[in-house]
Amino acid sequence: MHTDFPELLGAGLVLLFIFYLGFLSIKIKIPNVILYILLGIILADALTDNELLHFASEIGIVLLFFLLGLEFNVKRLGGIAKKIWPSGLLDVALSLGVTTVIALLFNLDLFSSFLVGGIAYATSSSITAKLLDDRGRMANSETEFILGILIFEDLVAPIVVAILFGVSSGESFTSLSFFILIGKIIGMTLIAIILGKTLFKNFETFLDKIMDEDFKTALLIGIALSYGGLALYLGLSEVLGAFLAGMMLAEIGKIDKIEQTVLPVRDLMLPTFFIYFGTTIELGDGIPMAGLLVSVLVWSVIAKLLVGLVGGPIYGLSKRASLRAGLSLCARGEFSVVIASVASGALKAFSGLYILIAAFVGMILFEQAPKLTTRIYGKPVKKKKNLRVPGD
């Protein structure tokens, strides 16, 4: 008798769990992302190294950032870049630099300290972007600043990952390796800009000629996955590649034509990323390095708050919007998981526990950001519509 558990049955059950938890999240008013991560932790033994789940999660996160990239054509992205770099560097200094120093003060060696700093550095792009979308905050004045910080982190985090992987593998990570990595990022960005201005210049007209929706879906998702896959092939993040793919197509007149085609597939696949993320968290026995854990968690929140409170006004935001931004940047996620995979032993267990708590705390602070802002600054004065968003 055949006793192996069919992957098809497993996939069906995961989808049913996604439906139930999504429905439950509405009833109990808890972000569905938290429930999906918890499901991943509970099913970790059954889903460990599940290639089907991993592949689905990759598609989900790629399509999320592909659709985000659609919102940023070259002109708009250039306007944001000019204003985001001071806040981005502040983020690197506070979240990566100071956290590394804190770990050194707890007598960790330089490599381990830099590893902890890397884990604490990058905000979870996927969690933050999903919550922005779910909570209807995409049109808020601080959203462009938040996305700008996420993009900046997505450019810096692959460099941190490459350094850590290079050192941990025993290979020397030289200045030449560093400049090659930067060259790849710049190269992919330039190619995306050139293709957007040439090959995809009349893409809207071409899409209108495709009458079969299935072919259109295959084309658009194929573009997103291909450029995301190219980024992976070059040793970069698929998230960065997917964002650039969206940016390539952002030059067309009406991006809603693309969004209507891709959104259903993204909404189906994206929950699997958070479930898969949950399966990668290894808690181990007990609480490893409890003092360091508490210190890094507290500083992680303070650092992102300072990025918002100090960096927001530099970007052109009000105090109210700056506070909302800082409170919305505290969740850690996918890059932290990638960096934590380099760790071993107690440091790996520490990393898993940190990521889990930081993800939950970050999502709670995101949820409470509007209320906390109102409590501190009072109710906002109603203004006329058609406000200009910084970077437009």
Rank of each mutant, 00 (worst) to 15 (best):
L96F: 11
A103Y: 10
L89G: 12
L70W: 04
L104R: 12
L39V: 04
L110S: 01
G69C: 09
I84V: 01
A120S: 12
G60S: 02
L89F: 12
I42R: 00
G88M: 10
I61T: 10
K75G: 13
D45N: 15
A44Y: 02
L68S: 00
V62F: 12
T123G: 05
A120M: 10
L104F: 04
F66M: 05
A56S: 12
G136E: 04
T99P: 13
L105I: 15
K83V: 09
S113P: 09
G79T: 12
I102H: 06
V62K: 14
V62W: 11
V98P: 11
L115E: 03
D49R: 01
A93H: 02
S87C: 05
G88S: 02
D134M: 09
I59S: 10
I59M: 13
V74N: 11
L89M: 14
S113C: 05
F111R: 02
G88N: 04
L94V: 08
D133E: 14
R76D: 12
G97T: 00
L68H: 07
I61S: 01
F55L: 15
F72I: 08
H54G: 09
G40H: 03
I102D: 00
D49V: 09
G60R: 01
L43V: 05
L43S: 07
I80V: 14
A46M: 14
N107I: 13
T128K: 01
D91V: 09
L131T: 11
F72S: 00
Y121S: 03
G117D: 10
D91W: 03
E51Y: 15
F114H: 04
S125L: 02
G117T: 05
L63P: 12
I41V: 14
N73Q: 07
A129N: 08
L52W: 00
A129P: 06
T48N: 13
H54N: 09
L43T: 10
S124Y: 01
T100N: 05
S126F: 10
F72G: 08
A103H: 06
A103W: 04
G136D: 08
D49L: 08
V92F: 14
F55S: 11
V74Y: 13
I59W: 05
N73K: 06
K83R: 01
A93T: 10
I61K: 07
I41H: 08
T48H: 15
K82N: 12
W85R: 00
A103L: 12
A44C: 08
L89W: 06
D49E: 01
F66H: 08
D134W: 06
P86T: 11
I42Y: 08
T100Q: 05
A81V: 13
S126V: 15
L68V: 13
A103Q: 12
L131Q: 02
F111V: 11
L64C: 01
L108R: 06
K75S: 14
K130Q: 15
L108M: 09
I59R: 12
H54P: 03
Y121I: 02
V74K: 13
P86F: 07
N107S: 14
S57G: 14
L131E: 04
S95C: 11
D109E: 10
A44H: 08
S125R: 06
I80W: 07
I61Y: 08
S57W: 03
